Amino acid sequence: MKRMISLVLALMAAALLTPSLAAEPAAAQSKPAGARIEMGVGHFNRDGKAFHYWDKAAEIPAGCARCHAAQGVPEYLANGKNAPAKQVKNAYACTNCHADMLSYERHKVSKLTFASGLEVDAGLNDANLCMTCHQGRESTASVNKAIAGKALDTPDPALAFIHVHYFPAGATLFGTQAKVAYEFAGKTYDGRYKHPKQLDNCLACHDPHSGQAKVEKCDSCHTDKGDRIADYRSELKQSMDSLYAGIQQYAIKVGGVPLAYSSKASPYWYTDSNGNGVVDDDELKPTNSYKAYTPRLLQAVFNYTFLLRDPGAAFHNRSYAGQIVHDSLESLAASGQSGVNMKGRTRP
């Protein structure tokens, strides 16, 4: 009898200490399989500039708040614009993407508007939500506005670098349907690049929290044998290297001032005072920003930076990426001042 009583008491204690699955909210039980948060990367990079650039400031400017404020995305989706936002040190909030933190339901986004003013619908809510931010902030239209009425090869101190901004993957994906990369007049460009249906959305290829590519998904189609994707990346890099060399030579011959790029700080393109081809530490300062742009140079620099800002361009839309770099090279070659030779180059 004593043994029976002890067993009953032990079972009662275990029942009290062990949470019941039946007592859990239904939404909590339906948490997506594999969903996880890794601090220090992507949207949760506590040390990254993207969400902490304004830690010492009173607020985040309205133009930046959509994608950098703790609650910027839902405000933009509700109002179509943002007001200046208070900077908080816990940075990007989960509720920027999730409308409900029990069910993990995402905000509803029926369509998105690119910086060009063009609207698209990716056909999937989550993809529209991702591209609400991952689309760039400048476009063909803003470059054309800056160079309107100016002689193509005449330096103009009123011209300044136009920065597309970081990770414009959605703009690459949709190509000419977005018109964010600079498209040259008289040329035709590819539109949306479509992957196989099961992989034709942002979250099929990227972790939503870290942004990291799900490489194992790529392996299902892109194998080591006969795979062309590595070649596409290599070809694009070679074309970009040629474009950078052409930009530098054109800047010297037409602008009379050497130009070099540095990823370390805005405005990224600096006067190469000593002409050694790189931005040295003493040249890396806002007052040394490049000031001898011509319209042709601005077009080329915009596209080169666009491709740098989307490191996955060869995957997102390789033909469109190839077209804009090819046309930028062709434009520089037409000046006769860049050293670019188009012989043997084929437009994608």
Rank of each mutant, 00 (worst) to 15 (best):
F114D: 10
H209D: 15
A10F: 10
Q71A: 06
N96P: 06
S331Q: 13
L152E: 13
S210G: 11
F306N: 09
K237D: 07
G42V: 10
R318E: 13
P348H: 07
A127W: 14
C130E: 11
N341Q: 06
L11E: 05
F161T: 11
L11M: 13
A65H: 12
F114H: 02
Q29C: 09
Y304A: 12
A57C: 10
A99G: 12
N96I: 10
A178L: 03
K86R: 14
A35K: 12
S262N: 10
A313H: 06
N303C: 01
D156A: 12
A13W: 08
H206V: 06
Y182D: 08
R345T: 11
S234I: 07
Y244L: 14
K214S: 05
I37C: 01
K225S: 08
V120M: 00
P155C: 03
V164W: 08
A148G: 02
K225I: 02
K237S: 08
L9H: 03
G312K: 11
A151V: 13
K197M: 05
N201I: 03
T132Y: 06
T346I: 13
P157F: 00
N201Q: 14
F302W: 00
S234T: 08
N303K: 05
G336N: 07
S6H: 13
S139I: 02
P208E: 04
H206C: 09
V73D: 13
Q212M: 14
K81F: 14
A91W: 07
E38W: 11
A15P: 08
L199D: 09
G312A: 06
P155L: 01
I162V: 12
N276S: 05
G48Q: 05
L118M: 13
A78F: 09
L173S: 05
A58E: 15
H209A: 15
T188V: 12
V301H: 03
P19T: 09
S6K: 13
A230Y: 07
A58H: 09
A14I: 15
V278P: 01
S234M: 10
F184S: 07
A57D: 15
Q71I: 06
D310F: 09
A122E: 09
M1A: 07
Y293M: 03
R233M: 04
P25K: 02
V215D: 10
M240S: 08
A35L: 15
S220F: 02
H52K: 00
R345D: 10
A148T: 04
Q71W: 12
K225T: 10
M342V: 08
I252N: 04
F306D: 10
A33V: 12
S139N: 01
C202V: 13
A115D: 03
S142T: 15
L307R: 01
G336R: 01
D327Q: 05
I252W: 03
S338N: 06
A292H: 11
M12F: 13
A300T: 03
A35H: 14
L129I: 04
Y320D: 03
G312W: 07
T154Y: 03
L112W: 08
A78L: 07
V180H: 02
V301F: 05
G246K: 00
L17Y: 07
A58P: 04
S273T: 15
F114G: 05
K291P: 07
D227Y: 02
A265Y: 00
V88G: 07
G336Q: 00
K81E: 11
A93G: 10
L7T: 12
L159M: 01
R3A: 11
Q337D: 05
H165F: 10
D327K: 03
N45R: 09
E24K: 09
A57E: 15
